[in-house]
Amino acid sequence: MLLQELWLRKLDWDELLPMQLQTSWEAFKATLLQLPKVKVTRFVHTDPQVPIEIHGFADASMRAYGAGIYVRTQTAEGVKSAKHLFLRTVGHDLLTAEELGTLLASVEAVLNSRPIGALSSDPSDGEALTPGHLLIGGPLVAPPPSALPDQISPTCLRLWRSVSSLRHRFWQRWSREYVSSLQTRQKWSKEVHNVDVGALVVVGEDNLPPQQWRIGRVVEVHVGADGKVRVADVKTADGVYRRAIHRLALLPMLS
């Protein structure tokens, strides 16, 4: 914004700043003292078979310039799955441009909220890395609406219910498939490693709202007669849950 203001005023390099701009610059410079506290992960380990894309963009408005760059990783199967589920969710519904744009933004938020790995091996750390961390520095959280749709107009309420229903249907289908994809499927003739205490897992649930993943650490395991873990107790942010092993998806440790 300061650079844009300088350009609009056509100030030369050696000209003194007006008092208003000088005050704004001093205030901005003071915030830079917090910069050493900002930590950005410089390397995220990914599967070598998964393609990595670097995306950059820049834009301007009447008040500011903006630019960003981020890393995108996505398997072809994941893209096809999301597109297929999106088309199945919409079906034969006729959407306006505004409804379609809102639904696509909601689907994008759902995809970018998915957990992809553990940030640390600390048993007390229950946070998982998501694409949202690479985009905005933290998990994507759906903000509460400033006003309820029925407080605006009946038409707005009808459109909101329609888009919310489509969003919820997509979330239910895609989150179920994603948790299933995290679970390693192997032939029964091949031994699979047991789940260890302290592992970060995603708990497969069918009744969670969009963008809400039940993530926690395994605090206790229960072994069956064959010596394999069949049930585990998982500590999450809202309590300890006991779930069968087939309802849990282990998150890899990112180096």
Results as ranks from 00 to 15, higher is better:
L3W: 10
L3G: 14
Q4F: 01
L6A: 03
R9Y: 03
R9Q: 13
K10I: 00
K10Q: 07
L11A: 10
D12W: 00
D12R: 05
E15R: 12
E15V: 04
L16F: 03
L16Q: 08
P18D: 13
M19S: 15
Q22M: 15
S24R: 08
K29H: 08
T31V: 07
T31N: 13
L32Y: 09
L33Y: 12
Q34T: 05
Q34V: 02
P36E: 15
V38A: 15
V38E: 13
V38Y: 13
T41Y: 04
T41P: 08
H45Q: 12
H45E: 10
T46D: 05
T46M: 08
D47W: 06
I54N: 05
A58Q: 15
A60D: 10
R63Y: 12
A67C: 12
A67M: 07
V71Y: 13
R72T: 09
T73C: 15
T73N: 09
A76M: 04
G78Q: 00
S81D: 13
G91T: 08
T96D: 15
T96S: 15
V107A: 04
P115L: 09
P115C: 08
S121P: 02
D122I: 03
D122T: 01
D125G: 05
P131Q: 07
G132N: 07
P144N: 08
A147C: 07
S153K: 07
R158T: 11
S162N: 12
V163Y: 05
S164C: 12
S164A: 13
H168G: 10
F170W: 06
W171I: 00
R173I: 00
R173P: 02
V179N: 06
S180T: 10
K190V: 14
H193W: 00
N194D: 14
V195T: 06
D196K: 01
L200S: 08
V201A: 09
L208K: 06
Q211W: 01
W213S: 12
R214E: 14
I215W: 00
G216I: 05
G216E: 09
D226Q: 11
K228W: 02
R230H: 03
K235E: 14
A237F: 04
D238T: 04
V240Y: 10
V240A: 14
V240P: 09
Y241G: 01
R242I: 14
A244K: 00
H246R: 03
H246F: 13
L250G: 06
